[in-house]
């Protein structure tokens, strides 16, 4: 083959997509017209009953719907009818706010744990217990104490993204090569300068890995959290469209959640590449 690996991979991807769309399209064709019925009744029952159309939308329906959403992503016609752009913006806003609050706490505490064997042992049991708690389990407690559903959602994002960052930061900091620390010692580098010029760059790739895991978890959790708190956000949108029985919109939302999640992950992957050093 003369074509590069990339070109061939793209071709295979396109084939898989095509096969999937074709199978999907065939799968939702449904049977043709069913027994004749009273026109009034047929109007009530919709196309599913009258023409045997599948209740599941096909790829063309979904494609048209995506086009429709992309044409006007930011419309606002009341609390239960907002464009997906607005919903995604709400979700992203919550995720980023909760996530950056978590960064502000996790990195310094991770540094402390990584630098001090005492704090490492002292805080370890707390982290081990807190880490496996499903973030949604915090929701009732957050709603009760904070008494504000919007802030509770942000708190849930905060609490779920803090642990991977903290643990990775601590690990990265404690695993800094002894020889680099010895360089700092022989050069009489002050502790603060050592933290920023030796430990931080040395641990940065590990820290970024933790941040990448965290943003992934945060984006997973926001959908579930918004289904609970309601009001706005892509998670609420999914639940609302389910209540409307608009499967097309649910599928559109699922796709958008995936795409946004990928963009978040790739953004951090790019930052990670910048701070990674070859040895």
């Amino acid at each position: 083959m003369l074509a590069s690996l990339n070109a061939r991979a793209t071709l295979v991807s396109a084939l898989i997509l095509f096969a999937f769309l074709l199978a999907w399209h065939m799968g939702v064709q449904g049977s043709k017209a069913v027994a004749p019925m009273d026109p009034e009744y047929a109007k009530l029952m919709g196309l599913t009953a009258t023409q045997g159309k599948s209740a599941m939308p096909g790829p063309i329906d979904v494609g048209l719907k995506i086009w429709e959403h992309l044409n006007q992503p930011f419309y606002d016609r009341g609390p239960n009818d907002k464009g997906v752009g607005i919903q995604l913006a709400f979700s992203l806003g919550r995720v980023l706010l909760g996530y950056f609050l978590a960064v502000l706490i996790a990195l310094p505490v991770g540094f402390l744990i990584g630098m001090s064997p005492l704090m490492n042992r002292a805080l370890d049991p707390f982290i081990q217990v807190m880490k496996p708690i499903s973030p949604l389990a915090w929701m009732p407690l957050a709603l009760y104490t904070i008494k504000d559903s919007a802030i509770s959602a942000i708190f849930v994002i905060f609490i779920c993204s803090i642990w991977p960052m903290m643990i990775n930061t601590a690990f990265g900091v404690s695993a800094v090569r002894k020889e680099w620390l010895n360089v700092a010692r022989t050069l009489e580098v002050t502790p603060l300068r050592k933290a920023f010029t030796i430990i931080l760059p040395a641990a940065a790739p590990t820290i970024l890995t933790g941040m990448r895991i965290s943003i992934g978890i945060a984006w997973l959790v926001i959908v579930a959290a918004e289904m609970l708190v309601g009001g706005t956000g892509i998670g609420y949108f999914v639940w609302n469209e389910w209540n409307n029985l608009s499967i097309t919109n649910v599928i559109v939302a699922i796709l958008l959640i995936g795409v946004v999640g990928m963009i978040l992950d790739q953004t951090l992957a790019r930052v990670a590449r910048i701070v990674t050093y070859p040895e």
């Binding site: 020889e179 010895n182 360089v183 010692r185 022989t186 050069l187 009489e188 050093y277 070859p278």
Partner: peptide
Amino acid sequence: PSLDRAVIFQGHSLLPWRTVLGNVAYAVSS
């Protein structure tokens, strides 16, 4: 440890995220 006594380590122990100039300049500015 003191800046009066420089150590050349067995492994080169350079800081891999800094350039050659950056590594030497780090010592100088220390």
